[in-house]
């Protein structure tokens, strides 16, 4: 493991000189504390598992928090039907490997009605397949706390989110009336029907997440690594060919050395041209980026403040 040396001091008569434990260890300690608090204070917590890099880190932190015991809550994946096939396979293997119970929830009526981001706009598609599905799932299982892997550095409205984010009986967020969050004392008290979304990675940045994955050798979906993949090439935009309906008339896929920077639904997640086929290369690439990781997500740009509006409605 990393930095064990700093936690274990050699036997010495000298006063212990504290070496710097490193920022990742400090973030880890804080996240583990949060995970344990939630497990202790809520009746039915659940971990939203989105299969992406942040979820992968969160899952590892949960393993650490409860070691040598098992993770004391189930995982929940909201499946929009548009996730990459590789993601679903990875998800099932991962749940088995960590020995956690996995619930998968889909908004079946909306999926059966042919909901997709081209037929509807991305905003309404997300509202049905993500937000509605999530609220239905939480209600169905009676979960009173749900962990999410969101980070405050992702987007401006996330910067104001508490670690324990209170949601009313409709699952909605009121940014003007958030509970003060003092020290590491988290208020877990809710009335029936109200719930808390918990973000143990709040203080991590994208760079922290990648470095931690590297240091801890955490498995991630292969789509994050560059390789030759068939893509519809539309100028700067690389569109994965996963779903037939995204194909424009006469369009033919080309093989492009590429990777995904963040994993979402295939019709709304563009790939980037990249040679980064190892974690150090991904981190080096990240250092050279001039745009944020969500820039290749269509959903955040629909309108000014669109993430905040979605969060008020109950989105993670």
């Amino acid at each position: 493991m990393l930095f064990t040396e700093s936690l274990v001091s050699t036997v010495s008569t000298e006063p212990a000189i504290r070496t710097n434990p490193g920022h990742l260890r400090l973030l880890e300690a804080e996240s583990i504390h949060i995970l344990r608090e939630v497990a202790a204070e809520f009746e039915r917590p659940v971990m939203l598992y989105s299969i992406g890099k942040d979820s992968s880190v969160m899952l590892r932190l949960a393993q650490k928090a409860f070691y040598p015991g098992p993770i004391p809550f189930p995982l929940l994946h909201i499946d929009t039907g548009f996730k990459f096939a590789e993601m679903l396979e990875f998800r099932d293997n991962m749940a088995k490997e960590v020995g956690a119970e996995l619930h998968v929830w889909r908004n079946e009526p909306a999926i059966a009605a042919g909901t997709n981001p081209i037929k509807l706009d991305t905003k309404r598609c997300c509202a049905l397949l993500k937000t509605q599905a999530l609220l239905d799932a939480l209600k169905h299982y009676g979960f009173d706390a749900a962990f999410g892997g969101a980070r405050r550095d992702e987007e401006k409205s996330r910067a104001k989110e508490r670690i324990y984010s209170f949601r009313d009986t409709a699952g909605q967020w009121d940014p003007k009336n958030q509970r003060p969050e003092l020290w590491n004392l988290y208020n877990a008290r809710v009335h029936p029907g109200e719930s808390i979304r918990v973000f143990p990675l709040s203080n991590w940045t994208e760079m922290d997440v990648w470095q931690y994955i590297h240091e801890e050798k955490i498995p991630i979906v292969d789509l994050y690594y560059a390789k030759e993949r068939p893509m519809y090439v539309r100028g700067e935009v690389l569109m994965p060919i996963e779903q037939e309906f995204v194909r424009l008339p006469g369009e033919e896929p080309q093989m492009v050395r590429s990777r995904l920077r963040s994993l979402g639904c295939s019709p709304c997640t563009g790939a980037i041209r990249s040679d980064a086929d190892t974690l150090p290369k991904i981190i080096a690439e990240l250092l050279s980026f001039r745009s944020s990781e969500r820039a290749n997500r269509v959903i955040d740009h629909d309108q000014e403040g669109s993430m905040e509006i979605k969060k008020r409605e109950g989105y993670f």
Binding site: M1, L2, T4, L7, V8, S9, R18, P21, R25, L26, E28, A29, E30, I32, H33, R36, Q63, K64, A65, Y67, P68
Partner: peptide
């Protein structure tokens, strides 16, 4: 003193 990454001989604040 038990952690996922192995036992420790000594641990200090703010570690979990």
């Amino acid at each position: 003193i038990v952690t996922y990454d192995g036992d420790l001989q000594e641990a200090h604040a703010p570690f979990s």
